[in-house]
């Protein structure tokens, strides 16, 4: 198995090398749309609504890139990818960018031949317990029965955490997510563990969300962000700054509603942001109004969070701006 994986990776890297003969930006401009790899369906991040239109935090990154490159956020085509498909799809050039709740790790950043442009959601593994058990901290979980899915880093993190804290647990390992959830909700296990975003969205879909609490301990780091291929720095820059423009705009208080009025502002930072002065667009190789277009058509990071994740019961938490106690931080646009 390992050999096959290695072989596949080898082939993948060869393929990845070949794609770069021509710049991604040129290719994208020539075909007239951004091909964006997304999740097949993950509520809040990438999910088609009843009318078949893609919505979500990850989808908004794709739209922002299109707004920056074409001045039109609708010029995106989505390629839904499964967990195994996503990397070959990017390596082979089938997609221009992968915005699919992918955890940034050193392996992926180096040997897979990718560059992570930044983080659009800081996730981490957490625990959910029924409220009636009256558990306040993960440290109280010694001897607990824990529902977990096999073959994921989740399972490894879990045993690491318990070993490090000299506690024991009884795992209930079930392959399918739905059945794992059933086991938890029917009381077969005391605790359910997965990424906090997953906990929030499953809890939000229960008739009585308040019956379950998510413990404060987060036992792993899962920074999720958009990914591009190695070796095309110009495209890397465009995707990176499309994401940062959304975060920066929130910090500056620019929203899709007020950005038109902001054009009249004398604030030099705003003037630079909307492209009235300075040549940031030109430096990136796109239109000078790129950031204006992103905010006007997609909105800032906070608006995107508000629209996609708030309704599911997500709190900003560490995904709040650094000025408000979180760790969302964009390098300065100047």
């Amino acid at each position: 198995m390992k050999r096959i994986v290695r072989l596949t990776l080898g082939i993948a890297l060869l393929g990845a090398g070949a794609v770069h003969a021509q710049g991604t930006l040129d290719a994208v401009q020539k075909k007239g749309f951004v091909q964006c790899g997304t999740n097949v369906g993950l509520a809040g991040f990438a999910q088609p609504d009843s009318r078949g239109a893609w919505k979500g935090l990850d989808v908004d990154v794709c739209r922002a890139i299109a707004a920056a490159v074409f001045g039109d956020a609708t010029k995106v085509r989505y390629t839904p990818t499964t967990a195994v498909q996503r990397f070959p799809a990017l390596q082979s050039g089938e997609v221009d960018v992968l915005s699919r709740n992918t955890t940034w790790t050193i392996t992926r950043d180096t040997s897979l031949g990718f560059n992570f442009v930044g983080v659009n959601y800081y996730d981490g593994q957490g625990f959910m317990v029924p409220k009636k058990l009256n558990v306040k901290s993960a440290k109280q979980l010694n001897g607990a029965t824990i529902c977990v899915q096999p073959g994921t880093t989740t399972e490894l993190n879990l045993s690491d955490y318990f070993r490090a804290n000299r506690m024991t647990f009884k795992p209930v390992v079930i392959e399918k997510l739905e059945e794992t959830l059933n086991a938890y909700y029917s009381g077969r296990c005391d605790v359910f563990t997965t990424d906090v975003s997953g906990l929030v969205s499953t809890r939000g879909s229960r008739p009585n969300p308040a019956d379950h609490v998510i413990l404060p301990e987060v036992i792993s780091k899962e920074p999720l962000g958009p990914v591009v291929r190695h070796g095309d720095d110009r495209w890397f820059d465009i995707v990176k700054w499309s994401l940062y423009a959304m975060i920066e705009a929130e910090e500056m208080g620019l929203t899709s509603k007020n950005i038109d009025q902001a054009s009249a502002s004398k604030d030099p930072a705003v003037q630079r942001f909307i492209g009235a002065t300075g040549d940031f667009g030109k430096m990136l190789g796109v239109d000078n109004k790129w950031a204006f277009n992103i905010i006007k058509q997609v909105g800032n990071y906070g608006e995107s969070f508000e629209a996609n994740l708030k309704p599911l019961g997500f709190e900003r938490g560490i995904n709040e701006l650094w000025t408000k106690g979180g760790i969302m931080y964009a390098p300065p646009l100047r």
Binding site: I11, A12, L14, G15, A18, A21, P88, Q91, S92, G93
Partner: peptide
């Protein structure tokens, strides 16, 4: 299906993508 969707694109020359 995996071969067709995951492995095959990697063998094709750059710029040639047969759709999924």
């Amino acid at each position: 299906l995996f071969m067709a969707s995951v492995v095959m694109p990697l063998f094709l020359p750059s710029g040639v993508t047969v759709d999924k």
